[in-house]
Amino acid sequence: MVVLPVRFERSPRLHSMQSEEAHAVGTKVVVQGKRGPEVATVRGEPSAPRPTERYGAVLRAATTEDLERWEELHRAGEDLKWLLRARARERQLPVKLVAVEFTLDESLVTVSYSADERIELTGLIGEVRAHTRARVNFAAIGPREQAQMLGTLGACGRENCSSTHLQEFAPVSIRMARDQQLPLNPEKLSGPCGRLLCCLQFEHTQYVDLLKNLPRKNAKVCHDGSGACGKVTKLHPLSGTVDVFTEQGMLLGVPATELRRAPDEGSTRAAGERGHKSARPPGPDA
């Protein structure tokens, strides 16, 4: 037995499947997944199974009949999807039908949909049952899963990461944009799904490491070279420089290694008072 990484049509995620033989990369195979038999593509080299892991099974290499049947079911799913979209518009249902997928044995049909609120789908379930004897499963998906299944272009001009290579949806926060010194513009930070860009997480750890060597924004610093003091207004982690707005009204771009912390006004005043007291003349009892 070997374990093969396989990929289904509508997702880049790799699934580990146990197989009695090692199929070459790119081979179409029939696998027994959670929903039933489906066609997938081998996307990696075989490896040894782990005793603690549970795997699906590769049933066989897909035959010509399997592939023809799979294409036929794919067309049937597309036709049914457009029919359901028309029926949803007639019923004025606030729902988007994303995909309709059959298993290879046509025992189950999965209808993936997205909606902003809970809706009644009884009428649409009846429409599906009128066209197939398969069991019907309506699966609600989120905006990111929708972009993953449909595929779209990202802000970079390439196909979005979620439909090409992303294996899981890791949490993305606005803090990541702040750490990368990006403008907090929702239109520029959001992907086609309307959520924060997944790619914000790719380089976040590197930016966190770079920021450790830079002063905080709004910190008061002094430049060793010019002696000018001022406030940090902007950080440039990749170049290791910061912008300093000086007390003289100038904006300086200087390396962080040439900066030192400005003396605190309170401590400077206290030091001056201590010096003033020590300079008092001795009293009559001295």
Rank of each mutant, 00 (worst) to 15 (best):
residue 155 A to V: 11
residue 188 K to L: 06
residue 228 A to E: 13
residue 94 P to Q: 09
residue 67 L to V: 05
residue 256 A to T: 10
residue 207 Y to C: 06
residue 192 P to L: 11
residue 176 M to E: 04
residue 196 L to S: 05
residue 266 G to S: 07
residue 22 A to T: 05
residue 162 S to E: 07
residue 6 V to H: 01
residue 59 L to M: 14
residue 240 G to V: 10
residue 79 D to P: 03
residue 94 P to D: 08
residue 69 R to I: 02
residue 280 R to D: 11
residue 34 K to C: 03
residue 143 P to D: 03
residue 156 C to Q: 08
residue 7 R to D: 01
residue 118 R to N: 05
residue 217 K to S: 03
residue 270 A to H: 08
residue 145 E to T: 04
residue 238 L to N: 07
residue 62 A to L: 08
residue 172 V to K: 05
residue 16 S to Q: 13
residue 144 R to Q: 07
residue 86 A to P: 04
residue 171 P to E: 12
residue 232 V to K: 05
residue 144 R to K: 12
residue 140 A to D: 00
residue 101 E to L: 01
residue 218 N to K: 12
residue 283 G to F: 08
residue 53 E to I: 03
residue 116 D to M: 08
residue 90 E to K: 15
residue 197 L to V: 05
residue 72 E to I: 01
residue 161 C to A: 10
residue 172 V to P: 03
residue 248 Q to R: 14
residue 242 V to P: 00
residue 91 R to T: 02
residue 206 Q to R: 10
residue 273 E to G: 00
residue 205 T to H: 14
residue 25 V to D: 04
residue 17 M to C: 10
residue 234 K to T: 05
residue 140 A to Q: 13
residue 153 L to V: 13
residue 62 A to N: 06
residue 185 N to D: 11
residue 204 H to G: 01
residue 231 K to V: 15
residue 272 G to M: 12
residue 144 R to I: 03
residue 223 H to D: 13
residue 132 T to G: 07
residue 279 A to C: 02
residue 164 T to R: 14
residue 205 T to E: 15
residue 16 S to M: 10
residue 14 L to C: 08
residue 48 A to T: 14
residue 162 S to V: 13
residue 21 E to V: 11
residue 232 V to R: 03
residue 170 A to M: 04
residue 163 S to L: 04
residue 266 G to L: 06
residue 224 D to N: 08
residue 43 R to A: 14
residue 123 G to V: 08
residue 237 P to Y: 01
residue 83 L to C: 04
residue 113 Y to I: 03
residue 286 A to R: 07
residue 9 E to T: 12
residue 126 G to H: 13
residue 60 R to W: 09
residue 277 K to L: 13
residue 131 H to R: 15
residue 89 R to I: 08
residue 116 D to E: 15
residue 12 P to E: 08
residue 126 G to S: 11
residue 35 R to D: 10
residue 228 A to M: 10
residue 10 R to C: 07
residue 195 R to A: 05
residue 19 S to A: 15
residue 160 N to Q: 12
residue 171 P to W: 10
residue 47 S to C: 03
residue 133 R to S: 09
residue 93 L to V: 02
residue 137 N to V: 06
residue 70 W to A: 14
residue 285 D to A: 12
residue 122 T to M: 01
residue 173 S to E: 08
residue 25 V to C: 08
